[in-house]
Amino acid sequence: MKAEPRAQLRLLDLQKLDSTLQQLERQRTHLPVLARLAELAQQRSAAGDYLVRAQTAQSDVQWELAKSDADVQLVRDRAARDQARLDAGTGSAKDLQALQHELVSLARRQADLEEIELDVMERAERADEIVAEASGAVAALDEQIASATSERDQALAGLSAQVSEVGAPRQQLVDELPGDLLGLYEKLRADKGGVGAAMLHARRCLGCQLEVNAADLTAIRAAAADEVLRCEECRRILIRTPESGL
């Protein structure tokens, strides 16, 4: 392949620009805040699951408390009716005696149920505390996520601005290059980790960082100035400059 020396040198300018754009893209995908956001998302998911479990337990104990209240109230109502009948003195002596025995039994039953109710109330209070703590943890994580998201968006906006600024002259560079040279460069850039052309500097290919052997150097010296050379080691386009050491 042939290309004017000036075009080959412009290819180095394009490579420098593309390398900078590649670095910016890497920064975009490796922002420290992205890892922090991923970690916060995991923490938020776990905290959310814990909150749901806590709320379910709270709901269960509230149902249990309501049932306990109803059981106690049922006994109280029954005792109140019996006491009213006893106070009225209606019925036979046997009936009144039976009411007295039932009131004693109801009092014991009420005491047992109130003890159960007290235990449930304590558990309900603790369930409320757990839900409050879990809700606070979720809210705190949401704040951290919002702050980190804002930080990420600002960083990405800054990088996008840099990409636009750095990439602005790219099309002009592309338009200056022969189509076949540009096509080879783009293919190699895709295959070689983003580097399709490299300078021959002090007898070393800056693409693979290997020194060119004596036989290849002889061939390079003998090549016409418009000959497009390739590194024998990495096969990237090799650009000669006054710093090549030829």
Rank of each mutant, 00 (worst) to 15 (best):
D119A: 15
C231Q: 12
G245P: 10
S164C: 03
E102P: 01
P242V: 15
A157K: 12
S164L: 13
L118F: 14
S147G: 03
A161E: 10
R26D: 00
A215W: 08
L118T: 14
A98N: 06
G207E: 04
A139Y: 03
A219S: 07
E4G: 04
K16Q: 10
L34N: 02
D175Q: 15
E64R: 15
E125I: 08
L12E: 05
L12V: 06
R230N: 10
A202K: 15
P5R: 00
C205S: 02
A134I: 00
L238H: 15
T56Y: 08
C234G: 06
I220K: 04
A225P: 01
V174L: 15
R152S: 04
V195F: 09
E165H: 11
A41P: 00
H101C: 00
R26Q: 04
D71A: 14
M199W: 14
L24Q: 02
D191K: 10
A140N: 05
A35D: 06
E165L: 11
Q62I: 02
R230T: 05
V120D: 02
A41F: 00
E115W: 13
R221S: 06
E151R: 05
L21C: 03
G167V: 07
R170F: 10
R6D: 06
L65D: 01
Q15I: 01
A93K: 13
R81A: 10
L99F: 13
Q110R: 14
A54Y: 00
L210M: 12
M121D: 08
S160A: 15
A70E: 03
L118K: 15
D153Y: 04
R235P: 06
G193N: 04
L12I: 07
D119V: 13
Q83S: 09
A134Y: 00
A202R: 15
S160V: 05
R204G: 11
V104L: 13
W63Y: 07
V195S: 10
D49S: 14
E186N: 09
D175F: 10
D175R: 15
R235F: 14
V52I: 08
R236C: 15
E102K: 14
Y185T: 01
G179P: 03
D142Q: 05
A146T: 07
E186W: 08
W63H: 10
A111M: 09
A84D: 06
Q97A: 13
Q100H: 05
P178T: 03
P5C: 03
R78C: 02
D71Q: 11
L182R: 03
H30Y: 04
Q83N: 10
D175L: 14
R189T: 00
L118P: 00
P178D: 10
H30N: 09
L118D: 08
A46E: 07
E211N: 11
L9R: 13
L37V: 00
M1T: 03
A139D: 06
E211Y: 15
A57R: 14
E186S: 09
Q83D: 02
I220R: 05
I116T: 14
R126L: 13
V212M: 06
L159V: 11
H101S: 09
